[in-house]
């Protein structure tokens, strides 16, 4: 029976792109990796106790929740104690950078999707595919483009974590009540004014929910990306798997959970506060 060359075609496309784009992607890789290294170095340079206290205070301020601040201090102290400080900093730096890219790309694409019907028809099914595709698959094309290492990890993380930012931005804009849009029209509002003065402010809490999801997905992907050299906490888990060190593996796992809880709660609270000013 004739076998459709699905994999072959995709391979050809990616190879073609790699051949013609790799100079750009490799250059990009150098820039991002060196700035990432700088960020990591800066974070590690701060004495751990100071970092922990400042982070705790910041979490308290942002979430207006004293218990969460306390949790952050204790959790980070535990991570330090378990000897996972450097790995954690590396993971957090990676998540920050990847999320930044994902949001910088995702929110504008989401806006465009909401405003343009053709874009909506194309982008929405694409997102469905992106979200159902197993996360590991994204790792493969990342390697030829960027080589093993952090840039490849960031690339696959951005691809993996961007869909909720796009989807919820689009949703937030589309769910602005019809009567408010009509009212804005009646007062002679231009499309751009409608977006800036009405739709984006009203979509803010929905967009922030998308950002929250993006951060969570980025965190989970950064761990998986350890397989292509992302190091960090995921790297510790990966090492533990290879050496069958159960204890070490769970320690790194607990570290990831602590970081995830802190990020999630802070972002959720921030979203709620913006919702009811």
């Amino acid at each position: 029976m004739y076998r459709l060359p699905v994999g072959h075609v995709i391979e050809e496309i990616i190879e073609f792109l790699v051949d013609h784009l790799s100079f750009a992607t490799k250059a990009c890789s150098v820039v991002v990796e060196s700035s990432l290294r700088l960020l990591e170095k800066g974070m590690v340079a701060i004495p751990e106790p100071l970092f922990i206290l400042v982070a705790g205070a910041l979490v308290w301020r942002l979430s207006k929740d004293r218990r969460l601040g306390l949790f952050a201090v204790l959790g980070l102290a535990l991570i330090w104690n378990m000897g996972l400080w450097k790995a954690t900093m590396s993971t957090v730096a990676l998540v920050l950078v990847a999320t930044l890219f994902a949001i910088m790309l995702g929110v504008p694409i989401g806006i465009f999707t909401a405003v343009n019907r053709m874009a909506y028809r194309i982008i929405m099914p694409t997102l469905d595919v992106m979200q159902t595709m197993p996360a590991f698959v994204y790792l493969i094309p990342a390697i030829p483009f960027f080589g093993l290492g952090k840039m490849a990890a960031i690339f696959s993380t951005v691809i993996f974590s961007m869909p909720p930012a796009i989807r919820l931005t689009c949703l937030g804009i589309k769910q602005v009540p019809e009567d408010l849009v009509e009212c804005a029209e009646a007062f002679g509002t231009s499309r751009w004014q409608r977006l800036v003065k009405l739709e984006l402010p009203l979509a803010r809490s929905t967009i922030l929910a998308g950002v929250n999801q993006t951060v969570m997905l980025a965190l989970s992907m950064v761990v998986i990306a350890a397989m292509i050299g992302a190091k960090g906490l995921g790297g510790e888990v990966w090492k533990a798997i290879q050496r069958l060190q159960m204890g070490r593996g769970f320690e790194a796992g607990i570290g990831i959970v602590i970081v995830a809880i802190i990020l999630d709660r802070v972002l959720q609270k921030a979203g709620k506060q913006n919702n009811n000013p």
């Binding site: 408010l180 009509e182 009212c183 009646a186 007062f187 002679g188």
Partner: peptide, 15 residues
């Protein structure tokens, strides 16, 4: 619309 016509709506449509 900006200069000649003001409109008031049944369900207020306040922002």
């Amino acid at each position: 619309r900006q200069s000649k016509m003001g409109m008031v709506f049944q369900n207020f449509a306040l922002f």
